[in-house]
Design a protein around this nucleic acid. Structure first.
Lengths: 215, 215
DNA sequence: TGTATCCGATACATTACTGTATTGAATACA
DNA sequence: TGTATTCAATACAGTAATGTATCGGATACA
């Protein structure tokens, strides 16, 4: 009972690892069978455990789903941050708007989750949250937080690119999100690759070179 | 065995009615529990039957889902057709581009399926098709057909509005679809109403008054 | 009205999944 | 090294869902 490091349990590291493996495996199974259709047993099997491990770590599937959402938001956000960094560099190097957009999107996809499994799971999560009241609230609060941070990043990015929006900012964000989503779905039905072309077209259509003195 | 009306069965009308009731009920249950999570029994219960009726009409749930997709595409298309009709009238009456878009979108939502249940089910169908190989092919062929018809309608609508796209046509269609989708999802999380505002913004951003002599 | 046929209801067998209670091996600390 | 504790494995009910085989009331046609 040595509480030297705060209330945290003792063995923790093994536990943390199995939690992690379970969550990773869950994504695979979710993509394959859907969140609702994914039996706990199959998740465990994919992670190399039995159901005992699962119920020792999570009260039920919903708990794991919530954890997954939390984790996902983090990943996406850091990916976005990196993308903006990359873009700023491109801006300093005097790249064209097209090139900057392209470079940023590429960086985002590389850092985030653009594989088939993740796309499917993200869509699943969204629908699941829309349906299950228990998950919905959490999802929304995460989503809102995420959107806020994204907005900042995008505003930053656009101004660094020496451009400005020709539509209200909030609408711009929504359109970007919509298109990103659609591009992901198209990748799901087409043969694989996420194609950033359409996002570029949209961005160029709803921005113009800044009239301000800046840059 | 009177084959007067072609190979069709005798009692047919009762059968057709129960099929219809089952499909309608399925949408409600799908929205509530997800396609995978929807037990056949619950669908039957909602339709006022027992499982016997179901298995007498469909070999399994997938068959019903396919039927649903087929049906849905039809509905959406006629809704789109009507929307364009309405818009043409507005165009003849010399309305502004904003007004025309607004009127058309309103007509589309009224004729199509803009209720919570239908939005959820449409999203479910899309994901389900992306995952289940058996359904996927069918979905894609329907979807392609639908997209083709939509493209014609939209091109028609835009030119009647005395406008032209500022981005490649194919991209425009995709962006519109993306945004329509997003608007629906937002309605799911917000409190109800589908808001056409964003679609209007997009349309105005990617079109301009036609330079041609026409009109 | 009688009779063949249709179609949904009922009953049954089987499988899949969940969740809990208990056990036993691995791990941390004295 | 011995001992307490943690954590996943195993075992056990219990429930839910599927699909099939059979039955019986309704419908069409003579």
């Amino acid at each position: 009972m040595s509480d030297l490091l705060g209330g945290e349990a003792r063995v923790t590291t093994r536990r943390a690892q199995t939690r992690d493996k379970l969550m990773t495996a869950a994504v695979t199974v979710f993509a394959d069978r859907g969140i609702i259709g994914a039996p706990v047993e199959e998740i465990c099997e994919a992670a190399g455990f039995t159901r005992g491990a699962f119920y020792s770590n999570f009260p039920d599937k919903d708990a794991l789903v919530l954890e997954l959402i939390r984790h996902e938001v983090e990943i996406q956000y850091t990916a976005a941050e990196r993308a903006v960094e990359v873009m700023k560099v491109a801006a300093s190097a005097g790249r064209s708007a097209e090139e900057m957009v392209d470079v940023a999107l590429r960086a985002f996809d590389a850092g985030g989750r653009s594989g088939r499994e993740w796309i499917l799971t993200q869509q699943e999560l969204r629908l699941y949250a829309a349906r299950e009241p228990g998950v919905r609230a959490q999802y929304l609060s995460f989503d809102r937080e995420c959107a806020k941070q994204f907005s900042t990043l995008i505003a930053d990015a656009v101004s660094h690119a020496g451009r400005e929006f020709t539509v209200p900012f909030e609408d711009a964000i929504s359109l970007l999100r919509a298109t990103h989503n659609e591009v992901q779905m198209e990748a799901l039905f087409g043969h694989g690759e996420v194609d950033s072309h359409r996002l570029r077209v949209l961005l160029l259509a709803i921005t113009r070179p800044a009239t301000q003195s800046g840059h």
